[in-house]
């Protein structure tokens, strides 16, 4: 491959990465600022972390968000996997067009519309059948599952499309019944995709403000809702501290996961190269 240094590409890349990362870095730096005024440096301190940890509201919101995120990720992974499986492996079935449309639409649907429509659904259902009697953790989780499963389905579809259908055919040829084929072949193939899907659904839920604010009821304040209600009035150093903790936690997790994946990939490439060299040696 030809790889000439292009000054233009190099400078755009540097600018782009700086653009993406400088705001985050500054956010982290200012979380250690003693001053109450965020952009005015008043010396190094961790006092805002103390303020943060003492706040009961923050803890309550964090716990609620984590609960919703775990439930959402689990259900969204289940439903999304089923949906991805149906779309890639079942060929044509009645309602397929509608189905694939409903799966991919939430990916691009503006959040305000999804949030508003779900809220109106919950109110209507409440009037008709008395459920849900109050809005909160359940309604937020249902709303999150609805849009997260679309992301999971996309990941599963990509994973399935990249694998050979003949693996499954081989299993049934060797005598495995459809259910066994699913547990022996399909699910192991899908496992990495399902893990990725779970993590994505978890983050999406932890990240959502708009939909949660629509479908939440009194008393149920998720972490993004709490952050939003504080920052819309201006900069707050304790939010910088919270942001630092969240960004570093997720960042480290993603970097480790990425590094593990990379290492596995490299190992596999190396193995393949070795095998190829061995064959060559044997041939000559």
């Amino acid at each position: 491959m030809q790889r000439k240094r292009s000054t233009f590409l190099f400078s755009v890349m540097c600018f782009g990465m700086a653009f993406l990362y400088i705001p985050i870095l500054l956010l982290i730096v200012y979380s250690f600022n003693y001053s109450k005024l965020v952009p005015v440096w008043g010396g190094f301190s961790v006092r805002w972390y103390g303020v943060l940890f003492e706040s009961e509201a923050v803890w309550a919101a964090l716990m609620l968000s984590l609960k919703i995120a775990v439930m959402n990720a689990t259900f969204a992974t289940m439903f999304g996997t089923l949906a991805g499986l149906a779309l890639v492996r079942f060929g044509r079935f009645r309602g397929r067009l509608l189905f694939s449309g409903m799966i991919s639409a939430p990916l691009v649907m503006p959040e305000v519309i999804t949030g508003l429509s779900l809220l109106l659904l919950f109110i209507t259902l409440n009037q008709l059948i008395g459920w849900p009697s109050e809005r909160g953790i359940t309604t937020i989780t249902i709303a999150h599952i609805t849009f997260s499963m679309a992301y999971v389905a996309v990941i599963i579809q990509a994973r399935l499309a990249g694998t050979d259908q003949s693996l499954e055919d081989a299993a049934s040829d060797l005598g495995a019944k459809p259910f066994r084929v699913m547990t022996d072949i399909t699910l192991p193939i899908l496992a990495p995709g399902m893990v990725a899907g779970w993590l994505l659904a978890f983050t999406l839920s932890l990240d959502d403000l708009v939909i949660a604010s629509f479908v939440s009821g009194p008393g149920a304040n998720t972490l993004p809702m709490l952050i939003y209600s504080r920052v819309r009035l201006g900069l707050r150093p304790d939010i910088n501290a919270l942001a630092t903790i969240m960004i570093l936690t997720i960042g480290i997790c993603v970097v480790i996961a990425g590094w593990l994946m990379l290492r596995k990939q490299r190992q596999r490439d190396q193995d393949m190269q070795l095998a190829a060299i061995e064959t060559l040696d044997r041939e000559f």
């Binding site: 952050i227 920052v231 900069l235 939010i239 919270l242 993603v254």
Partner: peptide
Amino acid sequence: LLMMVILPFWTSFLLRVYAWMGLLADRGT
């Protein structure tokens, strides 16, 4: 580079927008 492009996507959208408030404010960075 790919990981660097994807990484912000995993971190909170709300907080990334908030980061710009600190940069762009009248008495901001």
